[in-house]
Nucleic acid binder design. Structure first.
Lengths: 359, 359
DNA sequence: TCTATTTTCGTGTGCGCACACAAAACTAGT
DNA sequence: ACTAGTTTTGTGTGCGCACACGAAAATAGA
């Protein structure tokens, strides 16, 4: 690896001049600039990123706003872990990651924790834009202060976020349609669940349902579907009642799509005998979902690798801050198809991280 | 992040002493060692890996031996790309990656290129142990010279490789059984292909077939299977003849398993009309396989993310050399289920790398 | 031709660490 | 108490780069 000093010797100038050429700073005559540029290219000069980060003593405050998780809904644990892992790795680069969490059912909590975050004077922000109007307020402030921000997991258009990292909900739903079709017979009837609560903006669930239907329509495959809205997934008795009622009316249901991470709850409310003749497809490998998959109570899970989403968001913002690398506007996570059989090999990065932490 | 200098000030010693404590070098009295150690822990001291790599001017030669690829068999292109990407990233850490390729059908080429590799005096080696006896010779030499080595993609037991990075063939086959079962009817008949040529040690294919059968046996699912051995996959006419013959005898075949990366070749030799009533499951997302998947001529591909395997092997060896991090003995790649619908989201890392390279 | 200004270029210092070497503080032997 | 040897500790330099500052060269104005 050739160094700046060596380039300088070849070009018969000082390291300062080479430095100016590399960074496009002014104060160099056009003649020498061209000469040095040529020598840089000829020698395939690549900057030593270690030395660079070391010399730039600037420290960055990268702040993250993400929903909290609890025993009932573990979904947000995974991205948070990914963020923590990335935080360790970028520490040497002068990036300090500050995490702020909020209650995903509470707009006030969202705003309050953003306030805390902004009080810390972040240099960059990663956030999960769960509520539309509140996000607008927050983004206004960020843009006024020229703080770059990334949207994590929830896609929202019309903003100047430097990137979005998450799943393509529509395509995820489309894939679930394909899988459902593959593992059920002809002219099947499917049950599609939804959540009544419009507490927060949920284009994720809506996109998945749209994608599911599209699969059948675009491929001209006849099918029937029944929708079922739940108001409250914590009241299991009620859920059971609703399901039983539906099964009595529609005796020919062969598959259930749960377009959220709550499929284990639904599966839990269906009697084991009934379950044997049903295909259940859901999303996200939360601890509960994984347990049900292992017990054959769920057929497929489509995972968005949210651990990696969290990890990536930090890494990408780091590259943006340190090297000014402009990321892709939308970075879609893989749509991982998880079954009982390949479960153990997914999420390896996550498990390794957890192991290392606990040892 | 607290620095050695700061620790030294707190402990009222010099940086040299702190350095000795951190690295466990001798020449420190027990008293001060304990004191400094305590202060290090209290302040949660983490070494700045950037400064460390910069100061350690040691350069490493990391050499890789891997089969070459050609237009007919692109499989090995992917790990090679992953290796190249990682090579760029670790350059700043003083790791120079030297790649050596060999003809996968030729034991002599394997040995010859290993000789070239070893002549370069590598500090560490990553290799694909395609031939058993030749590998033994090579490994003997490596161990005599105390050169650490990793096995990539091909699993071979009984050696002192610091790690194996690749797929669990058996479980891959097991998964293919599950998928096949899900998308075909009851009492189905499956065609399982194999390659006659025993040129090289191929426990990969054997493991997959074993896994496929196990799925049905372990779950007590009745099924029939027909095996078909090909001698030469380059003679397409012959392959077509063999397939036609099989289909005439076994009219009830509903699924085909190709336990190698050559499923597109098989699919290519089956008439489109016939194909419509068949489920084809194969392995690896080579360019050809991907094309066939897109045209609905393949149902599922199980990918081992060989790009990532190559990438990881270099990263893991780097960590071993620089920080002496001992890796896991076996690092199994995820068994990714790829369909037409989620194809575009897989292999993102690889595409991004290729894009960046071509711009 | 001689200053004043602007443009162009070179030098020095420090980032946090590793490591060679020098210096001090002990220890033992006389 | 003094030397020689041993253990313990401190100091200096360089890794490759960024950046502030100052020096030199070029240009302009009189």
């Amino acid at each position: 690896m050739i160094t700046i000093k060596e380039i300088a010797e070849i070009a018969n100038v000082s390291v300062g001049t080479v430095d100016r050429v590399i960074h496009g700073r002014d104060g160099v005559s056009e003649k020498t600039r061209e000469r040095v540029q040529k020598i840089l290219e000829e020698n395939n000069f690549k900057i030593n990123i270690l030395a660079r980060s070391l010399a730039m003593k600037k420290k960055y405050n990268l702040s993250v706003l993400i929903p909290d998780f609890d025993a009932d809904n573990l979904f947000w644990k995974s991205p948070l872990l990914g963020i923590s892992k990335a935080a360790e790795e970028v520490l040497s680069f002068g990036i300090e990651v500050n995490k702020f969490t909020f209650n995903q059912l509470d707009k006030k909590s969202y705003l309050e924790n953003f306030q805390k975050l902004i009080d810390g004077n972040p240099d960059a922000v990663i956030l999960t834009p769960l509520f539309l109007n509140e996000t607008k307020i927050m983004v206004d402030l960020l843009e006024k202060r020229e703080i770059p921000y990334i949207f994590l997991n929830i896609e929202m258009n019309g903003f100047k976020n430097i990137s979005f990292i998450g799943q393509d909900s529509y395509k995820g739903g489309y894939l679930s349609g394909k899988l459902m079709h593959l593992c059920t017979g002809k002219d099947a009837t499917y049950l599609i669940t939804d959540i009544e609560s419009k507490l927060y903006n949920n284009n994720v669930i809506e996109g998945r349902i749209r994608g599911f239907n599209s699969y059948f329509n675009k491929n001209n495959i006849p099918f029937n579907s029944v929708s079922l809205n739940f108001e409250d997934l914590t009241n299991l008795e009620l859920v059971k009642q609703q399901l039983t009622a539906i099964f009595e009316i529609h005796t020919n249901i062969t598959g259930i799509l749960v377009p959220s991470s709550r499929i284990s709850t639904i599966s839990n409310c269906i009697d084991s005998e009934k379950l044997k003749n049903l295909r259940l497809i859901g999303f996200d490998t939360t601890a509960q979902n994984v347990a049900y998959l292992k017990n054959d109570k769920i057929t497929f899970l489509i995972s968005q690798k949210s651990f990696n989403q969290g990890f990536k968001s930090v890494k990408i913002m780091t590259d943006y801050l340190i090297q000014n690398t402009i990321p892709q506007q939308k970075i879609y996570s893989p749509l991982e198809i998880i079954t009982k059989e390949n479960l153990e090999f997914s999420q390896q990065d996550k498990w390794h991280y957890l192991e290392a932490k606990n040892s």
